[in-house]
Design a binder for these strands. Structure first.
Length: 439
RNA sequence: GGAAGGGUGUCGGAGAGGUCGAACGAGCUCGCUUGGAAAGCGAGUAUAGUGCAAACUAUCGCAGGUUCAAAUCCUGUCCCUUCCGCCA
């Protein structure tokens, strides 16, 4: 959510920023609603002030045993004032609902360095390694995984339906090894390990910005129309992590808070991408470790770089060829001010596929989830310096670190041999009893 | 799942329709005192919104309701504690 104060005070500037990712921006209705709401609010506050004063009078008169008629007169007057207040409150609520709807639909303001435009404007900021050259005809990961007994797609479909698979034997061990490799890396970096519930309530989804927009993208376990009892399976642990501090004020000396969490991610992927994304490139359930940071506004730009570097190091540690893309404004998801994608080379697709998305949400998520911090700022002007207490919203950042269902295909395809065996990246060998070759 | 009790400021804890943003205590900050510290004394110590300001408004888990007036009464809901049941 964008700060309405920003729009109120500097609508032209906000518009200019949003044009990077939107074709039309118009604040006319929003500003009018906001103006009307504030006017009514002021009116009602004055009425309330009056009522509070007269109510006190009633108490005084009563304790002084004043004439009943005198008291009655004030009470009758206050009945009318009360009715007016209630009426105006209703009007204000209506305006607030509408303002909230409009405001919720607006995307975050892109960071200054983010370039305008869509996917075609994305640019690579880093490339690691090179595309492997094969002296034989390389196989795709579906064939490799099936022949090596790593993944059983058919039985996955039997148990659950399309878009699922079963990790079997070495496949399960390889998956587990990857997760262990990630976990160890993040712990060494001083990030705190979090294992969240996978079943979240509607409020959590709402605060994370999932709902109502993505109602159809997640699996509800018990769907209620009014959402009082609704729970859903998390589509990413980011949804859980942002909610760690929902409606809380975090002590400034605790920031930055650096978390990482492991969870499967459950997604409907309703649209479907057809045969271009066969195998385990896109499924209803995949494993992912997610990094998440709560920090002060002045730290988020630096911490963004840290997250990018972490994601890159994880892939580099496996020796996989990848590129890092700086996404153009329209390609960033709407809540994010800046996003980089780390993309793995998948030979069979003759293309790169995202395995980590690193984003700075600035205060956009925190505003919706109501997460603040207490700061003591030194403010200096002509009369000298003084300490000013403020409670600004925190900044939040998230990054995959990493999604395994994209890594396993990249590993088996990039490291395959002519005979269909696969070399195990050395970083994983210690998690697999020293195994160097999957055959 | 059933029963009972409870959610008040940084913390402990009063308040049980009327001058309550909230007694009292602890903590914390500043000042006095001291060689220094402790003790003692004095002052201060929530957040948000509106306003140039004075000031005003809202907030006692959350959402509604009753009332001229709600921390206080009513309803719903969430959470916590204890007991019973069930169970990896």
């Amino acid at each position: 959510m964008i700060d309405i104060n920003l729009i109120r005070e500097n609508p032209e500037w906000v518009k200019e920023q949003l044009f990077k990712r939107m074709d039309t921006v118009c604040f006319e209705e929003l500003l009018k609603l906001d103006f009307d709401k504030r006017k009514l609010q002021r009116q009602n506050e004055d009425l309330r002030a009056m009522r509070n004063k007269r109510s006190m009078e009633i108490a005084q008169l009563k304790s002084a045993k004043a004439a009943e008629i005198q008291v009655e007169a004030i009470i009758n007057l206050m009945v009318k004032v009360g009715e007016k207040i209630a009426k105006t409150d209703k009007k204000i609520n209506k305006l607030e609902d509408r303002i909230f709807t409009i405001l919720s639909a607006l995307p975050n303001i892109p960071s200054p360095e983010v370039i305008p435009g869509g996917k075609e404007s994305n640019r690579a900021v880093k490339t690691f390694g090179t595309k492997p050259e094969f002296t034989f005809t390389p196989k795709d990961h579906i064939e490799l995984c099936t022949k090596l007994g790593l993944i059983d797609y058919e039985r996955g479909a039997k148990m659950s339906g399309s878009g699922t698979w079963v990790y079997t034997g070495m496949g399960a061990r390889l998956e587990w090894a990857l997760l262990n490799y990630f976990v160890d890396f993040h712990i060494a970096n001083g990030y705190e390990f979090i294992m969240p519930p996978h079943l979240l309530n509607y409020e959590s989804g709402y605060a994370a910005g999932q709902f109502p927009k993505f109602d159809d993208d997640v699996f509800f376990t018990n769907y209620h129309k009014d959402h009082k009892q609704s729970r859903f399976l998390l589509p990413t642990s980011e949804t859980a992590l942002i909610n760690m501090f929902r409606n809380e004020t975090i002590d400034a000396d605790k920031l930055p808070i650096k978390y990482f969490a492991y969870s499967p991610c459950y997604r409907k992927e309703a649209g479907g991408y057809g045969s271009s994304e066969r195998g385990m490139i896109r499924g209803h359930q995949f494993n992912k470790i997610e990094m998440f940071i709560f920090c002060r506004s002045d730290e988020s730009a630096i911490l963004f770089n840290e997250l990018v570097s972490n994601a890159e190091k994880l892939v580099e540690g496996l020796g996989l060829h990848y590129q890092t893309m700086a996404l153009a404004a329209k390609d960033c998801s709407s809540g994010m001010a800046k996003t980089y994608d780390v993309e793995l080379w998948i030979p069979s697709m003759n293309g790169y596929k995202e395995c980590s998305s690193i984003s700075n949400a600035t205060d956009f998520q925190a505003r919706r989830a109501n997460i603040k911090t207490k700061l003591m700022d030194h403010v200096c002007d002509g009369d000298g310096c003084k300490i000013v207490k403020t409670t600004p919203f925190v900044h939040t950042l998230n990054a995959s670190g990493l999604a395994t269902s994209r890594l396993l295909p990249a590993i088996v395809e990039q490291f395959q041999n002519a005979d269909g065996t696969v070399n195990v990246p050395s970083a994983l060998q210690k998690y697999l009893g020293g195994m160097k070759l999957i055959k």
